[in-house]
Simulated scan of single mutants.
Amino acid sequence: MKIAFYGSSLLSAYWNGAATYYRGMLRELAARGWEVTFYEPDAFDRQQHRDIDPPVWATVVVWDNTPGACREVVARAADADVVVKASGVGVFDDELLTVFDHARPDALTVYWDVDAPATLAEIRGQPEHPLRRALREIDMVLTYGGGPPVVGAFEALGARMCRPIYNALDPTTHHPVEPQARFAADLSLLANRLPDREARIEGFFIEPAASLPDRSFLLGGNGWHDKPLPANVRALGHVGTADHNAFNCSSLAVLNVSRDSMAENGFSPATRVFEAAGAGACLITDHWEGIDQFLKPGEEVLVARDGREVAEHLAALTPERARAIGEAARRRVLAEHTYARRADEADALFRQSLAARRERSAA
């Protein structure tokens, strides 16, 4: 059984927060017998910043960022049993929707959204948006975040089915390691500078840092080089995935700050949440509805509604309590929130849907 997956990048996490999700999900689906081909464009300098080699569990096709190359890889959808177009490829997104037109009649067609709030905001004001037509014709929408508001919104736009397949942990890639002095801090944050998150990072990270001048803060991620920061904040720039474990294990606590739309919709834990928990880090997160579905506030995660509460959590946090929270979070995600569990959901959904379709065709 073959999956053709059209996404941003499997090989590079450079300006590509979905990479960890793609890798965790697709490796586990391959372990369940799926033959995965991932089609990614040579765009945004990602191929120059690869952080993994082509894996044995997927065939990766890197296509030139040209209309002709796009048409060529789109046509290959006819070879697959499941055809997946992910959101946010970043180039030729509308043209890539035609993969569904190339799918065989007996194939399953899936739009897999890794940023549902942004997608919904984009198409709400565009009655002729190409995705609107696609949603009414394909079999299902999967999202890596979003609860009832996201499901309801996609179904209102005509999707036959919408189901969240949430972010999770791959314990083979994200796990405890020895701390490293270069990542030592009281509070660390790993987040690219994005327009719809910058104000929240100012409130949840930069302002608490300014209010606690005797504590040390570490900021990793692209785009912060020209941002004015308090003297006790050290900006690292891009942190490759190979360093994420050390980054998460070397500070007293790790902060998660959601983008505006993710926080508003809730039920959208970022990959960073599970990466940090998998490393046994003490996580402080901004508040969003549904957090208790994934981690228990006060025991497995600390939740802050504003920067003042971030500062209060940090001021009261002892190494012993931080260790206890991190260990509890790791136990929880290993038990309930791994990509193996998520892939079981997707695998069953794909196989059941394909079997039902083929049974109807044979009747």
Rank of each mutant, 00 (worst) to 15 (best):
V36F: 04
N65C: 13
D170F: 14
A253W: 12
C282D: 03
L334I: 08
W288Q: 11
S251M: 05
A121P: 00
F204D: 02
V151A: 04
E28C: 08
A316E: 09
V62A: 13
R200I: 06
R308Q: 11
E312F: 08
L10R: 07
H102Q: 14
P269R: 04
M1I: 06
T98M: 04
A322Y: 15
V82P: 00
M140D: 02
T172D: 00
R342A: 03
D53M: 14
A210Y: 09
D81N: 09
T285P: 00
F294S: 01
A235T: 15
A263V: 14
D94Q: 11
K227L: 02
P105L: 10
A270T: 14
V62K: 15
R50P: 00
V84P: 08
G146D: 00
R234E: 07
V150L: 06
L120R: 12
C282T: 13
F154S: 04
I52V: 15
A199V: 12
G266Y: 11
L26R: 08
I165G: 11
L314N: 10
L349P: 03
H225R: 10
C249F: 13
L131V: 01
L295P: 13
Y144W: 13
E264M: 09
L255G: 06
R136C: 10
L229V: 11
T173I: 14
V150P: 01
R197N: 05
V82I: 15
T172E: 00
D101L: 06
Q180S: 02
E40M: 10
L157Y: 11
D306N: 08
P149K: 11
D260T: 14
P195Q: 00
L236N: 08
H102D: 08
F100R: 00
A134H: 04
L302T: 04
P230F: 13
V73R: 15
G147C: 06
R23H: 03
L236C: 09
A4P: 01
R357I: 05
E345T: 14
V62C: 14
I138Q: 09
T241A: 01
T318V: 08
G7F: 11
H175W: 12
E178D: 10
L11S: 02
A191Q: 14
F204Q: 03
I284R: 09
Y111Q: 03
E178N: 06
F183N: 02
V82C: 01
G7A: 12
D292I: 07
D170C: 07
